[in-house]
Design a protein around this nucleic acid. Structure first.
Ligand SMILES: [Zn+2]
Ligand SMILES: [Zn+2]
Ligand SMILES: [Zn+2]
Ligand SMILES: [Zn+2]
Lengths: 152, 152
DNA sequence: TTATTTTTGATACAAAGTAGCAAAACGAAA
DNA sequence: TTTCGTTTTGCTACTTTGTATCAAAAATAA
């Protein structure tokens, strides 16, 4: 099977899982919301909101930014998409949401490429640090910039 | 000694240390850079760039945003100030820069209040996770949202 | 001094995100 | 099916955040 086909299959898996998740939680994965999610999935990386406006607009119909932002808000609330604050961009959340793990989004400083890793060790260490700081709970998501090993 | 006086003393410590740091590294802590840093120190928390514009502008002289952004860029490069990407704001870096520690900025989701904690445990756990993700190095700074214990 | 580099000022602009309200679509009753 | 309240979408305009550009000023070096 070609890597192209593999990716296509992964895309369909993500779409199906998003569909299931929404159905199970009585959330409505409406056409635009699905189109935004699909575009993020297909891009394979972080995409800016105004990029999504362009990509999902046709010559006939230009979407308003707020339409995209609303769809993104929905997808984020559903846990399907993360916002990368340092990049002003949005990226699909991979992996089953493991409640005890910290979801770390590593962002390559050069290219903006991201890789998501889940780690219970980091979660535990951050929880301890949070306690020190007087925080009772912390977000299970964080963003860390770094340099990707450039394998040519 | 009053807590007010204690804070004043802390402020002066930070200013002096910033001055020393710049002198030692041949960096120029010019008047406007120092004013921006001082304002951040005195505020005791994160402040937005345009807030700084207002606070440092007088009736006679209105500073241009770019002036503030340049000062902030300098201060960030010097390691004196952090940008909180999730809050679009800037905050002074506390603590001696311990090279082996992760500097975690906990941000209260409700108030925006921040507390900085340095942790070698988190640094180590993140480093391991980064290795998994194929990252050779990571930023020693991260931002985590959470809920502060509300001590009334 | 004179030349070179760095910093600041001023204007305009770009990019990211939101407010407000009306129309449309949807979902649950009746 | 019709009614009615709720949710979603479209549309316009607007706010907030951050930059590009180029000239003037200040600092540093020669
Ligand atoms: Zn939301
Ligand atoms: Zn995720
Ligand atoms: Zn810089
Ligand atoms: Zn710091």
């Amino acid at each position: 099977m070609s890597t192209r086909a593999v990716r296509k299959e992964e895309e369909e898996n993500l779409l199906r899982r998003a569909d299931d998740l929404c159905r199970q939680n009585n959330l409505r994965l409406t056409p635009i919301r699905e189109r935004v999610y699909r575009e993020l999935v297909q891009s394979g990386g972080p995409v800016g909101a105004y990029d999504l406006v362009d990509r999902l607009s046709s010559d006939k119909k230009r979407l308003a930014p707020v339409t995209i932002y609303r769809a993104l808000d929905f997808l984020r609330d559903a846990g399907l998409v993360h916002r990368l604050a340092t990049q002003n961009s949005y990226v699909v959340s991979h992996g089953q949401p493991d409640v005890n793990a910290m979801k770390i989004m590593f962002v390559d400083s050069k290219t903006g490429e991201t890789i998501e890793v889940h780690s219970t060790e980091v979660a535990e260490a951050v929880r301890k640090a949070a306690e020190q700081a007087g925080f009772k709970s912390v977000s299970p998501f964080m963003e860390v910039e770094g340099e990707l090993n450039r394998q040519s």
